[in-house]
Design a binder for these strands. Structure first.
Lengths: 330, 330
DNA sequence: TTGAAAGCGCTAACAA
DNA sequence: TTGTTAGCGCTTTCAA
């Protein structure tokens, strides 16, 4: 592998001048530029990134922390982020935490070891008090889920309003015995979403049996499982608010096997508006999240921080979202 | 940020000894080990990866080239690879080429610039003759799609057999007017898959109208579009072989709108066996690909190459797959 | 506009 | 078992 020194020798110039050409510094004569370009080409020279990184103390790499890449929400989010990052010559390091606090810390450590310049949390496992300490090694922002007290930019949706609107829809359609599936973690996202549901329920003067509150529902299989539980109840809910279209799809599929008719016996509300929502039958009434927009916005914010070196400050950027009515609710 | 030198000073030892402790070298007394550990902890020291990489000429990072992470096939593949990589202390750099030759080359260049140690192609855009030149910068293997003549390990499925089995199934169920959707690229995967289809068709003495051959079908929307084309034909096929469950799902959904009954008016065969296959109605008869197994196997092969520094050689590792019969075929 | 030289933080050959 | 030292390949200050 040729080094900058080899190029310098071949060009009859100093390494410094070669470096200037590589980095587009001003004050290099066109003549030398040409000579250098020729020499680089002849040798097939490419700068060694690790040497550059060591010297510059920058990696041009941003880590994105997510739960699982196979979750369509995250894969779409990451895809949109990648487009913006790439356009600005940043690379994305996709970090799957799998709901594991240790793994999250391991990834955060990349900031310390200078393997990444910054971190975007799209899901978070540890308490902010633990994450906080990493702020001195590089910028951190949130996107989607977040830690409320963090003094950093947060790009998200108004989960409270979202689930309020969805729940209100169920109530308006005459459902009275509402069930709720949420995540397991005590994150802001889960909390707000649940609060929105509860607010709408309370406002309508409805009662929610504890039996109808489900936790840890994320996948298609979780949805199926929940339906089986519902089927075995004496006191069944007549509608269910889920945290994702996958769960809703699982519920709908399994409902058919149990002779439960959606939307009449059971109204089902999804979340996300994934492609799957319009493929199952009945189509899933769901709360549309502008996934890609969140990804793009978050990456824009991060690039801006990195480029303009501006200080982090607490800031809430909330994007709008809306209800998509299909056939899984009356 | 403390450096190895700071630790050395605090511990009253040389940087070399600190380095030995970091890297678990033999011939360090337990006593010194303890002193060093204490000093590192006190300073909150972490080795600078870029310095290590520059010195060692290794990054412990493997690039995986895929089309799009939002494609469930690829996101599952990547997820399974990541588990194995992580277990061996390798990081994965996910590179979305978006079917763009230039982007692929850009990512390959990371090999030259020492930002990655190796490359796994899960989809390929450029000719092997172009990629070949990068072999001298690090190991390259294929997984899923591949370049046949490449003298490197290839982990894949027998696409020919797969589509043959699927097509045979359609024929056995009495379908006689078969349509085919394939990818657009002239890759080995596309070619073999098509050849398997053609072989089964020919064997059965059936005729395939050119009108029934579709290209570039990848997404749900592509499936819908194709169904619309079929609906407008005078001479309709009675079954269709698709390249993915997404396309199949699009076809099925759109068929309902056009009063075409699946599986009676039109048999639909998917590919992959994604979760979606059992959620749509009718469920999709499909060719199951052991995605995760491919990912795990490919990563095992790569890690082995990297660890044992063995030379690359042409080797075909084919994994089995099978037909899953649901309701989209008679 | 160019060059000399120091040093980013680490590892490993060699010496002790 | 430990230390000294020479780089890995690059950028940047300072001087010319």
């Amino acid at each position: 592998m040729p080094t900058i020194e080899d190029v310098a020798k071949l060009a009859g110039l100093s390494p410094a001048t070669i470096s200037r050409v590589i980095n587009n510094h001003p004050y290099v004569s066109q003549e030398k530029k040409d000579i250098v370009a020729k020499a680089m080409k002849e040798l097939g020279y490419v700068p060694n990134s690790n040497a550059q990184r060591l010297r510059r103390q920058k990696t041009e790499t941003i880590a994105v922390l997510i739960q699982r890449i196979a979750n369509p929400f995250f894969s779409q989010l990451v895809e949109s982020m990648d487009i913006i990052a790439d356009r600005n010559n940043y690379k994305l390091l996709i970090c799957q935490t799998n709901n594991d606090k240790e793994k999250e810390l391991k990834y955060l450590n990349l900031l310390k070891t200078k393997q990444i310049d910054a971190v975007i949390f799209a899901s978070i496992e540890n308490e902010w008090s633990i994450v906080e300490g990493f702020l001195k090694y590089g910028p951190i922002i949130f996107c989607n889920d977040f830690a409320e007290t963090a003094p950093v930019p947060i790009v998200c949706l108004d989960q409270y309003k979202g689930s309020y609107i969805g729940t209100k829809h169920l109530i308006d359609r005459g459902y009275k015995r509402l069930s709720y599936c949420g995540g397991s973690k005590a994150t802001c996202l889960s909390r707000d979403r649940r609060a929105g549901f509860m607010a709408a329920v309370k406002e309508a003067g409805l009662n929610v049996s504890d039996q109808w509150l489900f936790k840890d529902a994320l996948t298609i299989d979780d949805g199926k499982q929940i339906l089986r539980e519902i089927a075995s109840m004496d006191n069944r809910p007549d509608a269910i608010f889920t945290g994702s279209d996958e769960v809703a799809a699982g519920l709908i599929t399994e409902a058919k096997r149990h002779g439960i008719t959606v939307p009449n016996d059971l109204g089902v509300l999804g979340f996300d508006d994934q492609p799957i929502a319009e493929l199952v039958e009945p189509g899933i009434t769901t709360i549309h999240q502008p996934v890609r927009k969140i990804g793009i916005k978050a990456m824009d914010v991060m690039i801006d921080i990195l480029v303009s070196k501006k200080k982090l400050e607490h800031q809430f950027i909330q994007l709008p979202f809306h209800l998509v009515v299909r056939e899984s609710t009356r």
